[in-house]
Structure formats: C-alpha cells, structure tokens
Amino acid sequence: MGTALFTVFATVACGAALAVVLSQNVVRMAFYLVISLGSTAGLFFLLNADFVGATQLLIYVGGTVVLLVFGVMLTASGPFLTIKSSPGDLVQAGVVGGLFLGLVAFTVLQVDWEANAVKLERRYGATSLERPGYNQHGEGHTTRSLGAALLGARFDKDLGRHREQPSTGYLLPFEIVSIHLLVVLIGAAYLARAKRRVSPSRDA
C-alpha cells in the first residue's frame, strides 16, 4: 500500500515538476506547481510528517501559489501570458539539466543511507522517532512534540536521556521569524503601494 501510494505521489510530483519546466504559459505552470507541491504534501504524509504536510498545503499551496497566480494576473499584459523560450535554449537546458540531475542523483543515491543511520545510531543513540515508548511519531503524531520543540523544550530527545545541556530547541527561530515576516511584509507592502501624494488632506 505504502509503495503504491509512494509511486503515485512521486510520479505525479516529478511529472508535474517537469511540466512546470516545459510549460510556456505561466498560469499553467502555476497549476502544475500546485499539483507538484500537493503531491509532495502527500509524500510528507507518507513519511509520517502530518503537521509538515498540512502546513505545506495551507501555506505553500493555499498561500504562496495563490500569491504567484495573483501576481500573474496583475502583470498579464495579453490575454494569456506566454513568454516563449527558443527550442534551442530548451534543448540546451534539457541536456544540462539531465547531466545535473545525473550528478546530483548519482551523488545522493550512491550513499548508503541506511548503513550511515545505523552507524550514527550506534554512537549517538536512536532518534526520537525510533525510541521505544516514544513512537507516536511513527504514526505521524508529531504535532505536540513539534510544538514543544518550537518552544525550546525537546521532550522527544531529552526525556529519559542523560544530557549535560538541553538539546537544540527552536525557540529563537520561532520568535525571530515573526520579526522577519513583519519586516518582509512591510517591505512588500511598501513596494506594492502607490506613493502617497503629499497633500494636506491625508485621507484623500
């Protein structure tokens, strides 16, 4: 079952990603992007990362891509915005991309990840996902642990282990990202809004 689902999601994700590259119409690209990102969310669910999958759907697919499509609509000068690349470029990109894919995939897949994980586990202990008695993660119930980790407490890592210092918690990024988002929001709003006219009546 897992294999079958994986095959479906992986094929759709990769196929749609390829379609994004090959498509010339921006809105179609956005559509394929949605499909690709959505299937990736499916992969996340298969990997027992429910919360990440849901976030992917809500923020990425429902937010970011909608934003992109919105941008396409605002900048579409013709009825269907198509900016074509020449076939020569495409062939060139295809060859280079194929070689690049070969390089990355070869490098990544050549590594014996299972052996590495076993080796690391021997020295540094099991990850929280494999620990007996804490395997709710195995079923995708990571929300609470994620919440605790974002507040800095790593119950999943430290509980019942001997540690000098608490393990890495993510309180700082969780908080600092909010400032970043605020700054970025202001920046985007600044660029997007028209320059207000300097006139006595401010609310005009």
Partner: peptide, 19 residues
C-alpha cells in the same frame, strides 16, 4: 526513493530558474 524525488524536484527547479 524519496531522495530521488527530492533530486528531481531540485533539478527541475534549477532548470526552471535558468530557462
């Protein structure tokens, strides 16, 4: 399998940015 998907997405993205 998953890393393969990641690699394909990555390379598609890079090619997309480039072309």
């Amino acid at each position: 399998g998953y890393l393969g998907v990641g690699a394909v997405l990555f390379v598609c993205g890079v090619v997309c940015m480039a072309t």
